[in-house]
Nucleic acid binder design. Structure first.
Length: 938
RNA sequence: GGGCGAUUAACUCAGCGGUAGAGUGCUACCUUCACACGGUAGAAGUCAGAGGUUCGAAUCCUCUAUCGCCCACCA
């Protein structure tokens, strides 16, 4: 009989179809049903400039698994997607594009920089209005890359609710938050020292600065006293900033220097008179113990300057060139200025010495340009008062952060929070809702543009040209996406989100800000749990990076092995708190798994197709709707179906256990455990045992009720297992599920109501019986292999004192013979006759195989001796443990009982092995006393 | 300078107080009618090292070594 179902599973043939179907059917919109428990999560919005990388793939896989699982548990699930406008990143890309249009002939690695510079120049020429038009245009053309990729990956999001951080409604929320914070004094504008990226031309927050270790120097410079009485030596890593020095500081407790406080020194090169001041910030043990103070170009010096009312002199400009205040060094770049300053100091004999020094320089996270600390007027959020509720919410467990070490990292950061610089000198983003009156200097912060100054009534106030840090807007994500500040239905129904999932790299950037702003504006937590996932690394545990060239494109691998295989590989490696070493081999392994499932389905479908119509109708009515996990089997009516009955009870019971385990694992974000559980169950229990066990019945060309029942039960087990696998491999399972015959039209496996939450009780009697039979079969196969009889069909004898076990084997003789590859099975009550070497089983039976050209007694003896030694070793170990008074007294009852039980089993096995050895011709029996020792313990 | 994590079978990783696990790879046999992207059987580990706590430690504590990450204003 030929089947139309291909032998090898081709994901590319079915995945795009279902991806399309899921989107088109709007399958993942939550219903209006208020009675069902809800489960909500907002997707961390990817940047419009991005394309899907492994990190996304992991994150989306984890989320999708949970969403599908909750949905199948009957919950009303909302997974809300969206995109982030990515202010600085988008602006740079668009600038580069403009630059490329202007300089189309450039190529090579230098071109990028040239395009960027040219694009930046042209942006300033064209002005904000035209430039922003270009940005929107770019967004329309390229901004949905990730969305398309997500659709293809099968992310079960509700696309009808997709949001963008620069949507009109979302922007209103951003402005609302800004205005309210300002009105409460939690946003202020101030002249402070900030991290300035001269390349990007904007301030960046401390979080956007990276530190890199670089080799540098420590220059020791002599500052002469004004009165000519010698000099004081200061050490610095940045000699060019001395041009902006307004003091020299020493520690007031430093006995070498404290008498100098209040005296004046002459700043070399510029001949400015500056004071020596005392400040406890100065570490007397570092350098010379005297520090030059440059309030305009160093955050510490800025703080010292504030404490001592020192002026700040800006000598480096926003373009990283020296200002006019740098005197003769004006217009030099900061690097040129350093060379010049050192040269001139040396010429003047003012350099005492130069030491090599390893320093950590601050660079812009985005373009790696050295960041210049500069004084400028920026907007800040006052974080301390806002952080407090955010700390309490986590400490009190209203927000649970998982794993625990991320919780600690979050709290540590929050405890020493500082103000957040939120203004950016960029154009693409949310414009700061502040206006300035040129006439009277009034600052107006408002939801709408003011037509005139409310203070002096004059003119049209000018809006602040800057935009907000992208994280300011994405910090509102969990509630702004649901319609806040409006009191929408969605907000009522889905806020707070039940869960948030993100990488640890944006814990501060994003999670912290969402918690702060959520608590502030909704009087509730933004989400109840925050699961922080790990990083995906390459197979050598290296961080993937473009420069290293080890970036694996998830789409490429997906194309090769199928989305399901990639998802499964990620899920199966996703242990909380540990980074993932992603290897293609692993994906290959799960591609094989998908193929295995496919072929099991193929087998079942082929045989269902042979069933007579009445049986199929039966199947239809029992397959949908689906009752609880572990549902009853279709009863086997004939007495000779006992073997099928046992297998059914066993597999249904296992299904219930597996469901329960997966429920627990997924509730604790143990994706790897859940994946392993379903993998092992599907392959090694369902396929290797259950399917093989019932196969002879299923393929029998009979129209009887016995074959139908076997086939139908197999289909039902398979169908249930498909559900359990579905969150991990949605495409494959959806496809197979649709191919199963049923009585009514079915929409999707993932929206079928299916009581995953309440699996049936386990059937421990059947499980135990099945295990006993399994043991017999495995032992028989083992002996066969060791005797080199794999091709043959030997007969076997099984002996036991226990009639019930013999009866169990007798009533399951068919599958035993079939699965063990035996010709016949004979039963012996009591012991085997002399001359027979037998294998003792844990169930207390002895098993012996017969074959005409069998057994070389020597090798048989070797095997028995090897087993005996192993058991003896183990037995001695348990004996030692049991002999210890302290163990018996102090270990818990059940542990002692367990060890005793184990000992009894081992002793029994040992005795029977020894006996078996003794029965072999010419082998002397074990000495009596030794054998006596292993008898059952009183 | 602080903080965190890793070190378990040839490889990649789980396990985190009670007989050392998985996947891949390896060995032998099997092209039996779902699947060779398959089946059956098997070999393989002083759980980094040293102390300690415990009846009992891969698992808890301390130190050491190697590797990695995060945070930090020491000029």
């Amino acid at each position: 009989m030929q089947s139309e179902i291909p032998k090898v599973y081709s994901p590319e043939a079915i995945e795009p179809r279902w991806a399309r179907y899921w989107v088109d059917q709007k399958l993942y919109r939550p219903s209006d049903d208020g009675a069902r428990p809800r489960f909500s999560l907002s997707l961390p919005p990817p940047n419009i400039t991005g394309s899907l990388h492994m990190g996304h793939m992991l994150e989306h896989t984890e989320i999708d698994i949970l969403m599908r699982w909750h949905r199948m548990r009957g919950e009303n699930v909302l997974w809300l997607p969206g995109m982030d406008h990515a202010s600085i990143s988008t602006q740079m890309i668009v600038e580069r594009e403009i630059g490329r249009e202007a300089l189309p002939d450039l190529e090579g690695p230098q071109a990028r920089h040239a395009w960027q510079r040219e694009g930046q120049r042209r942006r300033l020429e064209m002005g904000p209005e035209k430039f922003l038009e270009r940005c929107w245009q770019w967004k329309e053309q390229n901004g949905d890359t990730i969305r398309r990729q997500m659709e293809r990956m099968g992310a079960s999001v509700d696309w009808t609710r997709a949001r963008f951080t620069m949507d009109a409604a979302y922007s209103r929320a951003v402005i609302e938050v800004f205005v309210r914070l300002y009105e409460e004094g939690l946003i202020y504008r101030g002249h402070y020292i900030v991290n300035w990226c001269p390349r990007c031309g904007t301030a960046v927050s401390d979080l956007e600065v990276e530190h890199q270790d670089r080799a540098g120097h420590l220059w020791y410079i002599r500052y002469p006293f004004e009165d000519g009485s010698g000099h004081i030596v200061v050490a610095t890593t940045r000699p060019e900033t001395m041009l902006g020095d307004t003091a020299v500081a020493v520690n007031p407790n430093d006995t070498r220097y404290h008498r100098l406080i209040g005296r004046k020194v002459i700043l070399p090169l510029l001949d400015r008179s500056i004071p020596v001041i005392g400040d406890s910030f100065v570490d007397p043990t570092f350098g010379t113990g005297a520090v030059k103070v440059t309030p305009a170009h160093d955050p510490n010096d800025f703080a010292i300057g504030q404490r001592h009312n020192l002026p700040g002199i800006t000598v480096i400009d926003f373009d990283a060139h020296m200002t006019d205040d740098a005197g003769p060094y004006a217009r030099l770049s900061r690097e040129q200025a350093r060379v010049a300053v050192v040269r001139d100091l040396e010429a003047a004999g003012l350099i005492e010495k130069i030491e090599d020094y390893k320093l950590s320089v601050a660079v812009c996270e985005r373009c790696k340009t050295i960041v210049e600390p500069l004084l400028s007027k920026q907007w800040f959020v006052r974080m301390k008062p806002l952080a407090e509720p955010a700390i309490r919410a986590v400490e009190e467990g209203r927000i649970r952060i998982i794993p625990d070490n991320s919780r600690k990292v979050y709290l540590d950061w929050m405890y020493r929070i500082y103000d957040w610089c939120i203004s950016r000198q960029l154009w693409w983003g949310h414009r700061i809702p502040a206006w300035y009156c040129d006439a009277c200097g009034e600052v107006i912060v408002a939801r709408e543009a003011p037509s005139s100054c409310p203070k002096c009534q004059s003119g049209t106030p000018r809006q602040d040209p800057d935009v907000l840090d992208t994280w300011f807007s994405s910090g509102l994500w969990p509630f702004a996406t649901l319609g806040w500040p409006g009191q929408t239905d969605d907000l009522r129904r889905f806020y707070p989100n039940d869960l948030m999932i993100m990488g640890f790299d944006i814990l501060f950037f994003w999670a912290a800000r969402m918690i702060v702003l959520g608590l502030k504006f909704t009087e509730d937590v933004p989400f109840r749990e925050l699961y922080v996932h790990a990083l995906v690394r390459d197979a050598e545990r290296q961080k993937m990076s473009k420069t290293k060239g080890n970036v694996l494109d998830p789409l490429e691998i997906t194309e090769k092995y199928g989305t399901d295989a990639v998802r499964f590989a990620l899920a199966s490696s996703a242990a909380p708190g540990t980074d993932i070493a992603f290897s293609e081999d692993r994906v290959k392994g799960y591609r094989d798994f998908a193929n295995k499932i496919w072929n099991a389905g193929r087998f079942i479908l082929m045989n269902l197709g042979k069933l007579p119509a009445p049986a199929l109708r039966h199947l239809g009515t029992t397959l949908d709707p689906i009752p609880a996990i572990g549902f009853d089997a279709v009863p086997h009516s004939e007495p000779e179906s006992e073997a099928l009955r046992l297998a059914d009870c066993w597999i249904f019971s296992r299904l219930a256990t597996v469901t329960r385990e997966m429920n627990e694992d997924l509730a604790a974000y143990r994706f790897h455990e859940a994946a392993h559980t379903i993998y092992h169950f599907f392959w090694h229990e369902l396929c290797d045992w259950y399917l093989e066990w019932v196969k002879p019945e299923v393929i029998k060309d009979s129209e009887g009720p016995r074959a139908s029942a076997a086939c139908i039960n197999l289909a039902r087990v398979f169908e249930t297992a498909l559900h359990l696998l579905h969150p991990f491999m949605p495409f494959l399972t959806e496809e197979l599920w649709h191919q199963l015959p049923r009585s009514s039209e079915a929409q999707s496996i993932s929206v079928t109501s299916f009581d995953l939450a309440n699996p049936r009780a386990i059937d421990s009697v059947s499980e135990k019986q099945f295990q006993t039979v399994q043991e017999l079969i495995v032992a028989a196969r083992n002996v066969k292999a060791e005797m080199g009889l794999q091709k043959e069909k030997p007969s076997a004898q099984v002996a036991s004192d226990d009639l019930r076990i013999l009866e169990l084997f007798r009533s399951h003789q068919e599958p035993i013979l079939n699965l063990a590859g035996l010709e016949a099975l004979n039963f012996v009550r009591g012991r085997l006759p002399a001359g027979a070497a037998a294998v003792p089983l844990a169930s207390g039976c002895d098993l012996r195989l017969f074959y005409e050209r069998a057994v070389d007694p020597a090798s048989e003896r070797l095997r028995l001796e090897r087993d005996l030694a192993k058991v003896k070793n183990h037995l001695e170990q348990t004996d030692r443990q049991l002999k210890k008074e302290s163990f018996r007294n102090r270990a818990p009852q059940e542990v002692v009982a367990g060890v005793e039980r184990r000992r009894a089993e081992l002793a029994d096995q040992y005795a029977r092995l020894a006996e078996s050895l003794a029965r072999l011709d010419g082998f002397p029996a074990e000495p009596k006393d030794s054998a006596g020792q292993v008898g059952p313990q009183p």
